[in-house]
Amino acid sequence: MSLLEIKNLHATVGDREILKGIDLTIDAGEVHAIMGPNGSGKSTLAQVLAGRDIYRVTEGEIVYDGQNLLDLSPEDRARAGIFLAFQYPVEIPGVSNMYFLKAALNTVRKARGLEELDAMDFLALVKEKLKIMDVDQNLLNRPVNTGFSGGEKKRNEIFQMAVLEPKLAVLDETDSGLDIDALRIVAAGVNALRDPRRSMIVVTHYQRLLNYIVPDFVHVLSEGRIVKSGGKELALVLEEKGYAGLGIEDAEEEVARV
């Protein structure tokens, strides 16, 4: 059975339709890359999977791990093993990263029938994950994402994923804004989490990331639809020929050329 099955998904914001019929099936352990021009709906799809309520699903369905995902609240999705690494992680002044992560981990553990971790065990776990992600421990004592650099925010997302150990991770442009060293660290962190029981959706603009995180499938999203799917070599074609090579208009580039 597939872990995730998206069928004919339509989603709107206000009265504007952004996702116009997405079909996507992901089996356990698979990594799917989603590429596509700016504004094509990649983040919208990611946010809809996580349950952001500003997007209204008007048609279609999403079956995750045998359940109707659209019936679940965002927190219940997280407890069921969905994790979204945000394109723009949110700064939350006044909430300490450490407190936040411990609360998150313990609710997720509870939902999985595991015992809650006390402060000591939590710290031990965190220290181990910090090492993998090469995150400075000081970040933990600061408020969530507040004043973090772009790279620190992205690393913090993957660090959270390492702590929460999701079944389905959706990484929304986790590579944007990273220099090559930071990219390697993040990619290594992600690869360390690859597991036959863990699936990933990796949203990116760049083939570069896919050199490190090698996907099983690549999909191209354009104007709210998946217009092409293929193996990892599709990313290379895109890199070489651009979206235009696939007959897809990149709205942003179009504007840039004028």
């Binding site: 349950g51 309520d53 927190e75 994790f83 939350i92 936040f100 998150a104 997720v108 929460l164």
Partner: peptide
Amino acid sequence: FYLQSRGIGR
């Protein structure tokens, strides 16, 4: 939403 997306109840 960010907090909820990490499993923390509303």
